[in-house]
Design a protein around this nucleic acid. Structure first.
Lengths: 203, 203
DNA sequence: TAGATTGTTAATCGATTAACAATC
DNA sequence: TAGATTGTTAATCGATTAACAATC
């Protein structure tokens, strides 16, 4: 029976995917127990997570790696190219503009936007930095629904409001504050400094 | 009664802290209900989280903002300066080297390390890039216990092993793979591309 | 005093783990 | 067949929410 995917399971799918793609022979078979041991997890949890995708294991042999990889990639939509934009072309924004890990998930960073004239017109890894004025047209032209906010906290809510008005539905927020968005917009907040502080408090 | 802090509560403390520091008058009072409404959470949850710190509210008036801020900062150790190092001086490593948000949590990024001779010797925001050879000495000299891994996935486990051998106890890992570490070392894994893919699958 | 708010105890909910039948 | 492994149902665990007494 195909269960609905809990948020926690969804977050583990990329972990399985990375392990399978880079540590296992795609033509071989692997058991949930072997995955669990490699990643330090419970094996039933692995089976439950995988059961939410279209993956099917064979009793006695496990899952075929190539099928498992495809099932996870299908679930995450890696095969559908989805454009995304970056707001803020500071150090982090430019690092993300040139980072090539997004394409493994079918995400195509098409441009960055900034309101600093010294940054506008720049090109990084072939990707342009435009002014905020160009955002609405670019987003509607490419049907962009995903955006990354890399602006200072003081500007983040205004940028967020602009994004929402342009039709963006998913926001990855690196500014250290909680964004207010309508109910149909999903925000994922990453605070790298806070994560390091939490880590420190746990050691 | 002072409860032990669950991991989930710990992760919310920086969210409260950012809200209080930048959206409220430090000399005023605020209720758990007001915090909850501002952040879109349950008010009992806010009180439970705050109860794990040294914060104390007053019936009828709420919490004094300045005391709440101090209590959270104390809990997270923001007032104790802790040095940290970065491995990998690519786009992300350099962005983190120049990011000034770490100091809000008492974390001082002292240097980055790379094995690319074109990067070694560079200085960003006054912070140097050294060769891997210098790592052991720097880490022991400053008593560093926190590190950030920004190297490619193919090099990450080797760098991780080096860090562990140098006495690092907390690792923030941006490489897209699960690191194997001894039981006394804590790893926090951030996969920005995967996070964006998960976001996309939720919209 | 009445009313708002805290802090805590009990109930609910969701996620993880354990147990086990089905399968090859 | 015997044994390993899947997939599922039941039990446990932990976190969130609800209820409410204590307090100012």
């Amino acid at each position: 029976m195909k269960e609905e995917m809990p948020q926690t399971s969804l977050q583990r799918l990329p972990v399985y995917l990375n392990y399978l793609k880079y540590s296992e022979d795609p033509e071989g078979y692997i058991s949930s127990g072997a995955i669990a041991r490699a990643l330090g997890m419970g094996e039933v949890l692995v089976r439950k997570d995988l059961a939410c995708t279209s993956a099917q294991g064979k009793p006695r042999v496990g899952y075929k790696c190539s099928e498992l990889i495809s099932a996870i990639e299908d679930f995450l939509g890696c095969n559908k190219i989805r454009p995304a934009v970056i707001f803020g072309a500071g150090g982090l924004g430019r690092a993300l503009l040139t980072y090539n890990g997004f394409k493994n998930y079918g995400i195509d960073i098409i441009a960055a936007f900034d309101n600093d004239s010294s940054k506008i017109g720049g090109v990084f890894s072939g990707k342009p930095v435009y002014s905020y004025d160009a955002a609405k047209d670019t987003i509607s032209q490419y049907g962009v629904r995903l955006a990354i906010i890399c602006v200072p906290a003081s500007a983040a809510q205004a940028v967020c409001d602009l994004l929402v008005s342009c039709g963006i539905k998913g926001i990855l927020n690196f500014a250290p504050l909680s964004l207010k968005v309508p109910g149909d917009v999903v925000v994922r907040h990453i605070d790298m400094a806070a994560d390091l502080a939490i880590l420190s408090s746990r050691i």
